[in-house]
Amino acid sequence: MNWPLFAGLAVAFTVLDASFMQVFRVGAAWPSLTPALVAFVAMWAPRSTVLWAALLAGLLGDLATPIPASDLSVIRVPGPQALGWMFGAAAILAMRRSLLRGHPAAVATSTLALLLLAALVWGAIWSARGLWPETEMPWPPGGGLLALRTRALDAGASAIAALPLAWLLARIRPWWGFPGPVWALPGSGRRP
């Protein structure tokens, strides 16, 4: 895989997610682009490359996400998103052979699955972190399910945002250097 291309797009999409994607917010649903990038890579790249890509992109997002540690300080926790995306990417790897990988809808569906699974990992890690008495949870007391619902709405919005992005990424698929025939482009159906 073309790692410089992935790194450049991951950084650009992380900045877009933090600064711009709010413009597409509908109610509590807030789309992101970076998960769609991971889902796209998970469609085509070798297994270990996919897991590395998900881990690194998630780690970048974790380090860009401030979490209140108390009333007067914020921390960044590396891991909840990185491990969640890695888990989600592993799930995509398991099901990608049954998908029409070249179709944008497949990337959108995979983005939805990735983020829903990642939300579960995120909630599990934060629940475990709650064992530290000084930890301030990212949801109010009793609001864990509400936080998961918000994440599920985000996942839906991100899946919709993934449709045009997947189409654009597929246009530059030859640049990615994925193994396999280059003719397996959008619309060509399953990869042999």
Binding site: M1, A45, L51, W52, A69, L83, I125, R129
Partner: peptide
């Protein structure tokens, strides 16, 4: 592409995720 699954980095990240604030 031929390398192994990033298991050790994932474990390291998991440990970091559980560190106290």
């Amino acid at each position: 592409g031929r390398s192994r699954t990033p298991l050790i980095p994932a474990i390291a990240v998991a440990v970091m995720a559980l560190l106290p604030p």
